[in-house]
Computed example of a mutant assay.
Amino acid sequence: MTEIEYRRLLIDSVRAGDYEDKDALLELLNICSLRFERTNVFTRNLWNHCKENIQVCIVPDKMVELKKHFDYLKELIYEIYPPNDDYELWDVEIKPGSMPDIEDVSQEILFENIRNQIIEEIRAAKYMIWISVAWFTDPVLYQELLKKKQQGLVIEIALDDCDRNHNAEFSLEDDFSVYWITVQSYYKNIMHEKFCVIDLYTSIHGTFNWTKAASFNKEHISIDKNHSTAAAFADEFMRLKNKDVWNT
């Protein structure tokens, strides 16, 4: 396993865990890099294995903050350390270092528990949320967005201009910037895109509409974490919001 792969595994493990300061630790790990320090010194514990130290490197002015999480971080690093034929993990250290020059790229495909995962991503948002879905009638997701609005996030929504959305049990227009999309042709068409962009980094896309019924359907989503995918969906959102009627 490479240093990049191990760093990604560490971040995913923290994200999936129940550490009480998970959000603060994830924010720090996103600006950390990992370094394997492999030695020629035998451990005298596992046969023919040498000592390997893992250094968690972070910019100096964030070291004190990261050290607050050291006990949990060290325990987790030992837990996820992959067995191998050459090295044994011997120690974990926090060291000063520069920002990582790699982008943490990940993709997760989900077929179950989709709404809960969307809620988790909404709660992790820090700056902005852009949503484009055919139908939005789920009051649970609506309430999660309201909480983020109260924190100061910019939230905008593009929706198909149809009775189903207008007759929802809540009014999105009362709380958010909503863009009603009309698709016009010889036939009855709808704006059927389903995606969400969070902080211009996380993209959620697939078959899942933000409705109560969708949680009981057979659906899927992909959660992509990288700037290039998020930018592509953000560009599409800008095209949707700036065109009143789409002709097909």
Rank of each mutant, 00 (worst) to 15 (best):
W130H: 12
T248V: 11
N165E: 02
L66D: 02
A230N: 01
L172C: 06
I80Y: 01
T137F: 01
M191S: 08
L29V: 04
F195C: 05
L153H: 01
N167P: 11
F36M: 08
D71I: 15
Y186I: 09
E79Q: 07
N45P: 10
P60H: 06
Y78T: 05
N84Y: 05
K194W: 03
D235E: 13
W135H: 14
D175N: 08
R35L: 11
I31M: 06
E37L: 07
G97T: 01
A16W: 08
E5S: 07
K212V: 15
I109R: 10
F176C: 10
F42I: 08
M128E: 13
Y81H: 08
D23V: 13
Y78A: 08
C196N: 11
I58D: 03
D86N: 13
T2H: 04
V178P: 03
A234H: 14
H192G: 13
N53V: 02
W180F: 10
G17L: 12
L159C: 05
Y187Q: 04
M99K: 07
L159T: 03
E112C: 05
T137W: 02
G152Q: 12
E20C: 07
E75G: 09
A231K: 09
F176T: 07
E103K: 00
N84G: 00
F36S: 02
L73Y: 00
S106T: 07
Y127G: 03
E88L: 03
T202A: 00
F216E: 14
S33F: 12
N189G: 04
W130A: 13
R35I: 04
R123Y: 10
I155M: 00
E3Y: 06
Q117C: 11
E144Y: 02
F111S: 12
K149V: 09
N189T: 04
K194R: 15
A234L: 10
Y87M: 04
E27S: 15
N116I: 05
V140S: 12
S33M: 15
T202I: 05
T211C: 10
I114A: 02
N217H: 01
I109P: 04
D199Q: 00
N247K: 15
E156I: 09
K62G: 02
D224F: 00
L46Y: 09
I190E: 13
D160K: 09
N247Y: 14
Y142F: 12
W210Y: 10
N53R: 14
A232M: 11
D161S: 06
K218G: 02
L153I: 11
K148H: 08
L73K: 03
F208Q: 06
I54S: 02
A125F: 11
Q184I: 14
S203C: 01
E156P: 03
F136G: 06
E52V: 15
A232I: 09
T2E: 14
K218V: 09
V56E: 12
F111H: 14
C32K: 06
F216K: 15
S215Y: 03
A232C: 12
R38T: 15
E144P: 11
I221S: 04
S185A: 14
